[in-house]
Amino acid sequence: MADATGVLVVAQTAGEDLNTTAQELLEAGRGVADALGEELSVGVLGQSVEQAARQAIQGGADRVYAVTNPLLADYQADLYLAAIETLCRETSPNVVLIGRTEEGRELAPRLAFRLGVGLAQDCLEVSVDPDTKRLLANRPVYGGNAVAVVSCEYTPQIAAVRPKVYEPGEPDPSRQGEVVSFPVDLDASQAKNRILERVEEESTGVKLEDARVVVSGGRGLGGPEPFEGLEELAKLLGGALGASRAAVDSGWIPIAYQVGLTGKSITPDLYITVAISGASQHMAGCSGAKVIVAINKDAEANIFKEARYGVVGDWQQVVPAFQEAVRELTQA
């Protein structure tokens, strides 16, 4: 694909709207497209996508491909992949950006292999090398202990961008762009696997990924009961409860609460960790937190190297007094 040009964002919808990750990708994609002096296109997949297409243009796209087929109404990996592959083959983009969402985790690698090209996985930043004009991607490796800068040797250059690291831009209602209808041929038999059942287990209340305040507990809590106390504290702060993998593996709390490399990535303004040591794999999920607070009895714990504020002490003494003072301050 020698004449490949342009940046293509693969967008998902939430109902009729462009989802948040797609809006973030538009922001990342606009930066890359401008640095390359190329156009920014967005492929919106679904059954009918007019509203999302309009939002994509207001969010910075020069062109939108409305990739439609009745079989795209519900997400199925094999069908979505076939649609994206067709879009890439027919529009020959130079760069493809996909969100590393639940779906993107599977789609991005499979797309790269189908096209015989490389994928920069789990990127925290995408930019353009001013000399070579190739895409540069920063990504955590070795459990967050190190950062790698990678580039893709083949075209299209594909990057899976971690959600929540780019902020969606302000929509500009006056922006103009082209909407290209792109119906795709799909056959139900292309879907190899079937989802038999989908079960939602997460508790009600503020979603961990969207919470402005998160309170997490670790192995040092010693059992499941203390999590009830922490949940109360989280509610008091208008936030959500989280946990380390050690607490999850101990069976004290479901995996939906796990923060970290193999759990959820969170970006709260305030992240309070209780009895968590601060292993790199845990920190990899909260590098986007603005202020980290550590409550831990071990002054040498790594978490104090990452925290803005810390209390060295037993949580059983620190947390109740902290919670009481918070109650007085916030309800006064």
């Binding site: 104090f304 803005r308 810390g310 002490g313 902290f322 919670q323 009481e324 003072a325 301050l329």
Partner: peptide
């Protein structure tokens, strides 16, 4: 990151001081 360790008369007091600090 430079961590500010919040002190108090005892652990509970440090917890209270932390709340004031965050406020």
């Amino acid at each position: 990151q430079e961590c500010e360790i919040i002190e108090g008369d005892d652990a509970a007091d440090a917890g209270r001081q932390l709340a004031f600090k965050l406020r």
